[in-house]
Amino acid sequence: MKQSPQQERNQKLGQSLVKELNSRHFSACYCPNKEDALQQALALIPDGDSITWGGSDTIRAIGLTQKVKEGNYIVYDRDTVPFESRSDYEKEHYFSDTYLTSVNAVSEDGQLCLIDGTGNRAASLIFGPKNIIVIVGINKVVKTAEDAMKRVRNVAAPINCQRFGNAKTPCRITGECADCKSPDSICRSMVTLRLCNPKDKIKVIIVGENLGY
Rank of each mutant, 00 (worst) to 15 (best):
Y76L: 04
Q66F: 01
V136H: 03
P82A: 06
F95Q: 12
F164P: 00
A178D: 07
T58G: 03
I135M: 13
I186N: 07
G71E: 08
K201E: 02
P129Q: 04
C171G: 05
K19T: 10
L112P: 02
T101G: 01
Q111T: 08
D77Q: 02
E176R: 14
C113N: 03
A157Q: 02
D184T: 11
N22H: 00
G54H: 01
Q40C: 15
S96E: 10
R60I: 03
S16E: 02
Y76M: 13
R163F: 13
G63M: 09
Y99A: 05
A156C: 03
S23H: 02
V191Q: 02
D57Q: 05
W53C: 03
V141M: 00
N72M: 02
K2R: 14
V207A: 03
E209L: 04
D179T: 06
N154T: 12
I51H: 09
P5Y: 15
S16M: 13
G208M: 04
T58F: 00
Q66N: 10
D36T: 10
N154D: 12
S102G: 06
I115Q: 06
T80F: 00
C29M: 09
N10S: 12
I51R: 04
K67P: 01
Q11E: 15
N197Y: 05
L211N: 04
N166V: 11
V142K: 11
C31I: 05
I59F: 00
D77I: 01
V207Q: 07
K19C: 00
W53T: 07
K181W: 10
A178P: 10
S182G: 07
D79A: 11
N72V: 09
N197K: 09
R78W: 08
S189E: 02
R86K: 15
R24Y: 05
D88C: 02
C171P: 09
